[in-house]
């Protein structure tokens, strides 16, 4: 950019009254695209939660009936509460496993050592794969007839642990959650690495001269600095997993097999609003939209609470 032209622009933009205008200009393109291609279609569809009828645009107004049946209908509500519970488990495992591992890997990768870029790339590799391929490979590894896991367990005389992994209603969901954590661990890792780099070397070195151990340094200096990032990562894990769909679809079909034990809000929504309960079923858009709205409100409450708390904390820290 040439300076002359900057100052020319600056001349126009310097006036106080135009200050707001520039900020608005910066926002407008994103707002336009986002509103036309996301907010508006979604708003139109949320409206459908008050209607019933066949097809994708039900037109028979029923007030809150869809919500009522979601919470009380003997078939629907059982599926709904089941999916809600599973989603919390799915989220909890990601939160614990994926983010803890991410933090651990980041704390290793933040210091330079031989081969650290190789390890970084390896951690990222599963993320580049399509869920289709991840589903296929892990199903193959866990296969009860010719899977590698059972072969390994047999080789080390742990046959008693062998299960029909993905066919067991108790453990299918935890296993798929772990596989999904395996796939996505690179993202929290990256964000934590970015945060850890902001810890200046001098502080750490002076602490080491004082004889602080690595662990002590980690807890005393690094954790406070990465706390805000933990916040962002948690929110992303929260919203990401509450709308998760792909990995279940790839590994347990859109019915959350076996016996709905891996059914999440995302798959339940897909079945209700888009695909139907069985291969030749008609979806119910009204109830599907109601379900999406409930999920949305749940997430919004969670995220707004976080925003409020983090803002309060920031204000206190600044004081």
């Amino acid at each position: 950019m040439e300076t002359g032209k900057i100052s020319l622009l600056n001349g126009i933009l310097r006036k106080k009254s135009s200050a707001h205008l520039v900020w608005i200009l910066f926002l407008i393109p994103a707002l336009l695209v986002y509103s036309i291609f996301m907010a508006f279609p979604l708003f139109q569809s949320i409206r459908l939660s008050f209607f019933t009828g066949k097809g994708l645009r039900p037109d028979n107004f029923v007030g809150f009936d869809n919500y009522v049946s979601l919470f009380t209908d003997p078939v629907l509500s059982v599926r709904f509460y089941n999916a809600l519970r599973n989603t919390f488990i799915f989220f909890g495992i990601h939160m614990f496993v994926q983010n803890t591992l991410g933090l651990l890997f980041a704390s290793f990768l933040a210091s330079k050592f031989k081969g650290h870029s190789v390890y970084r790339t390896i951690i990222f590799m599963p993320t580049t794969l399509s869920t289709l391929v991840i589903g296929f490979i892990w199903t193959l590894i866990l296969n009860p007839q010719w899977g590698a896991l059972n072969k390994i367990l047999t080789a080390v005389h742990l046959d008693s642990l062998i299960r029909p992994w993905l066919g067991d209603t108790q453990i299918a969901l935890p296993i798929i959650s772990l596989i999904s954590s395996w796939q996505w661990v690179s993202l929290p890792t990256m964000m934590f690495v970015a945060a850890l780099f902001t810890v200046s070397d001098e502080i750490v070195e002076s602490a080491m001269i004082d004889g602080a151990s690595n662990a002590a340094i980690f807890w005393r200096f690094k954790i406070p600095l990465i706390l805000p990032v933990i916040g962002i990562v948690s929110v992303l894990t929260f919203v990401g997993n509450f709308t998760a769909f792909d990995i279940i679809f790839a590994m347990a079909t859109h019915r959350g097999e076996p016996m709905y034990s891996t059914d999440l809000l995302g798959t339940f929504f897909y079945r209700t609003a888009i695909a139907g309960e069985h291969p030749v079923a008609e979806p119910n858009m009204g109830v599907g939209a109601a379900l999406a709205t409930v999920t949305f409100l749940l997430l919004l409450t969670g995220v707004l609470t976080w925003l409020f708390l983090s803002r309060k904390q920031r204000l206190e820290a600044n004081r």
């Binding site: 907010a39 508006f40 569809s45 949320i46 709308t243 769909f245 949305f296």
Partner: peptide
């Protein structure tokens, strides 16, 4: 931007994280 307005836009934007766009397929 030191103003109250962007805070609202911020929430407006991140609300989009919380709802699958598949829902709006037909309108889209």
């Amino acid at each position: 931007w030191r103003s109250k307005i962007p805070g609202l836009f911020y929430i407006y934007f991140i609300a989009g994280l919380m709802i699958p766009l598949r829902l709006g397929t037909i309108n889209l």
